[in-house]
């Protein structure tokens, strides 16, 4: 067990290093963008004097490394500073929206992961059957369409024609849970259609990959039922790649939902980052980016650890 703790420690340390490098890149990248917040707010007609004064007020006149260190110091304490655009606390601004994004991602994950795994296992079990082909065609078509297209199709069917679900996913902090789920179902469904194919195909491929192994033949020769061969003998050995794909897709659900949030006008983090980039509201963009990077690192770390735990060779050395 100590070995695993050590491993987790190492991975965590590397994760932190990655985050730090990411923060540097983000900071530098934004720095190289033409124009700044002062210009954006005051507009084309601003005089150099007023620009200089405004920059001084915002702290933009400081050299880059001073601002970076100041920002990093604050971020370490959980204080991302204030939004330059509206002077609100960034942590407060992001907090609610991040919770919203997580909620949508979790909802989509709860729907998509079991569906993908079940479809994948069944496709492996009945491979090359009509069912297998249908599942492949359907999931691959759904991943081939752009997200906004799927979103509008779903809205067209479920909101406009059938009038079952709302087309706007407008939630606030005091929306009760059930209503929240109900409102978020269409965006969650859109995301599900986007991510299922990847996870399902990987599940299917990983299991089929193993079916030629001697131990699978052995299970057949022991007279085991087909379902047991797949679930008990193949699946546990196929978990590592499956877990990794699930983790990547979960990360996508949190980080890559910008378009879906925009289509459904969902108050999530994706929309915030788009708005802030437009406004050159650097502190907000930096904070959002850092949170996204952190999400990736954390999910991949979890996937690594789960892969190790499901592999007895790693867990119980000789």
């Amino acid at each position: 067990m100590g070995k695993i703790l050590k491993l987790i420690g190492q991975r965590l340390a590397i994760g932190l290093l990655v985050l730090w490098i990411v923060s540097l890149i983000i900071f530098a990248g934004l720095e190289f963008l033409p124009g700044d917040l002062a210009q954006e707010i005051l507009g084309q007609s601003a005089t150099p004097e007023s620009l200089a004064a405004f920059r001084k007020e915002l702290g933009l006149d400081q050299p880059m490394h001073t601002r970076y260190l100041g920002w990093l110091g604050g971020a370490l304490k959980g204080d991302f500073g204030v939004s330059l655009a509206n002077q609100r606390e960034i942590s407060e601004l992001i907090g609610i929206r991040f919770a919203n994004t997580i909620f949508l991602a979790v909802l989509a994950a709860i729907i998509s992961v079991p569906i993908a795994l079940t479809l994948g296992i069944l496709a492996a079990l009945y491979r090359n059957s009509l069912y297998d082909r249908m599942v492949n065609i359907l999931t691959l078509s759904s991943i081939s369409f752009p997200e906004f297209f799927i979103a509008y199709i779903l809205i067209y069917i479920f909101s406009v024609n059938l009038d079952i679900f709302p087309s706007l996913a407008n939630v606030s902090a005091d929306t009760p849970l059930w209503e929240r789920i109900y409102t978020c179902l269409l965006p969650a469904l859109t995301l599900t259609l986007v991510v299922v194919a990847h996870m399902m195909r990987m599940t299917r491929a990983s299991i089929i990959n193993l079916l030629a192994s001697p131990y699978i033949e052995m299970a057949n020769l022991k007279g085991m039922k087909k379902a047991r061969v797949i679930l008990y003998h193949a699946l546990p050995n196929a978990l590592a790649p499956i877990i990794n794909v699930v983790a990547i897709n979960l990360a996508y659900l949190i980080v890559g939902v910008v378009i879906v949030e925009v289509v459904f006008v969902y108050p999530g983090l994706g929309q915030l980052i788009v708005d802030s980039v437009q406004k050159r509201d650097m502190p907000v963009v930096q904070a959002c980016s850092l949170i996204f990077a952190g999400t990736y690192v954390l999910l991949n770390l979890t996937a690594d650890i789960l892969s190790i735990i499901t592999n007895p060779r790693m867990l119980y050395p000789k």
């Binding site: 192994s213 001697p214 131990y215 052995m218 020769l221 022991k222 003998h233 546990p236 050995n237």
Partner: peptide, 24 residues
């Protein structure tokens, strides 16, 4: 046929290392 395998007729493979499932 499946119901006979393992009970009436059993099999011992060449490479036990590969024929045992590493997960169990």
């Amino acid at each position: 046929r499946r119901a006979m395998r393992g009970i009436k007729i059993a099999y011992v493979a060449q490479s036990a290392a590969a024929s045992f499932n590493p997960a169990h």
